[in-house]
């Protein structure tokens, strides 16, 4: 679904929640007539279960889109193995192959991207415009952060992940 120039995606879990409560409401309304007068606020509430995730996704996507030019300008290309604690806060660019993808169903994908020198975790807090899968060759722009904010190994807080043709 496109709103303006932003491609908005609803996570599977949001759709699942919406479907679950819709079915629950239909069954309850069929079995208990006392519920029917409340449908006037229950049905709009049900749609809010879809509208709120869409609005949140739109807001995060548009913010990421605004950040993209800054990251493309400032990022320094580095090798994965050379990313370390001293680089915390730096904007970097890496190229590599996607080895694993997690949490896509939550719209918070986490990738493991590897180049010739090593692998690193790449966290994204919104959906990327492209559907990135395992074995895709990608370039990643993001900031080096600690995995758990204050502690943990360095990971990349990704702002841009896009497929490229050449080998890393």
């Amino acid at each position: 679904m496109k709103i303006g120039t932003i491609d908005v995606k609803v996570s599977n879990i949001s759709i699942g929640v919406f479907v679950f409560f819709t079915l629950l409401l239909i069954i309850a309304a069929m079995m208990d007539t006392g519920i029917r007068p409340h449908l006037i606020w229950m049905i709009p509430s049900l749609f809010l279960l879809l509208v709120i995730p869409v609005a949140l996704n739109y807001m995060s996507r548009s913010q990421y889109k605004d950040l993209e030019p800054t990251y493309e300008k400032e990022a320094k290309t580095v090798r994965v193995r050379l990313i370390n604690e001293s680089m915390i806060g730096k904007i970097v660019r890496i190229e590599g192959v996607v080895e694993r993808v997690h949490f896509q169903f939550l719209n918070r994908p986490q990738y493991s991207v590897a180049d010739r020198s090593g692998a690193i975790s790449v966290k994204m807090f919104t959906t990327p415009p492209e559907d990135v899968k395992v074995k895709d060759i990608v370039e990643v722009y993001g900031q080096v952060i600690r995995r758990y904010m204050l502690t943990g190994e360095p990971v990349i807080n990704c702002v841009i992940i896009r497929k490229i043709d050449r080998k890393p």
Binding site: K76, V78, L82, N84, S86, M87, K90, V92
Partner: peptide, 9 residues
């Protein structure tokens, strides 16, 4: 060493 570690190549 330190500049290299920081990515200041």
């Amino acid at each position: 060493f330190l500049y290299f570690a920081e990515g200041e190549y």
